[in-house]
Write a protein that binds this DNA or RNA. Structure first.
Lengths: 112, 112
DNA sequence: ACAATAGATAACTTAACGATTAACTATTGC
DNA sequence: GCAATAGTTAATCGTTAAGTTATCTATTGT
């Protein structure tokens, strides 16, 4: 339930997990489908999905017809927080680009 | 020169590098300043900065007054690419959320 | 030329990460 | 109840990544 920016970036750093997110963006999938589509084994995908769950990127739910089937789908707000982090960064950039060349040779005599 | 989304997320996955990016968002800094602000040693920061350079997030330039001083500053377009990746994801979400509950109990009889 | 400074590189250690095989827990169907 | 299925957890291995100490290069100042 994190929606933590650090966890989101950490989760999205892995190419397999990015692939999973790309797949889930086209609709929810079961765990077996995800593992097969990503080309990884079941146990490996289980750990990846746990990381994505901890980052708040995906959510799971049991299929009502078949209780052993686990369906995963994305959570829009989690990535929105990460996107906000990047936007907040760009907000600071506008200010930085104005005082850009001014600070280049600053603090030549600045031991502390 | 990457501006690669994978490299950007991988670079931003590390908390030390995120701290560096946060620092550089408030203006360009020298390598020594960055290492001191992040609380890490020079060699460790040198490797982090190399990763940020490879990801296209930061750029370096020699100080004209002091050639051994290396000043680092951010590159707005690099994070814009990563932000675009997240936005492209949200674009797919709108479609997914419409056919949301429809696919939950799909493929109950789908062995392969 | 010599000492000092700013960083980067080398070699090494340790910790984290990812994949695999095997065993385990539920759940469905006969 | 028993076999099969869906998925997770356990234990292990190999790889990668991060940090540290020491060394090296380049540049500035005297």
């Amino acid at each position: 339930m994190a929606t933590d920016v650090a966890a989101v970036f950490g989760a999205l750093a892995d190419p397999t997990r990015r692939h999973v997110v790309q797949l889930l963006s086209r609709g929810p999938r079961r765990a077996g489908e995800i593992a097969a589509a990503a080309g990884t084994s079941g146990p490996a995908m289980s750990r990846h999905l746990r990381i994505l769950l901890a980052a708040g990127i995906v959510t799971d739910e049991r299929s009502p017809g078949d209780a052993r089937v686990r369906v995963f789908h994305l959570r829009p707000d989690s990535v929105a927080a990460a996107s906000a982090w990047l936007d907040q960064l760009q907000a600071h950039w506008d200010e930085q680009l104005r005082s850009f060349q001014r600070h280049v040779t600053t603090s030549r005599r600045n031991p502390r």
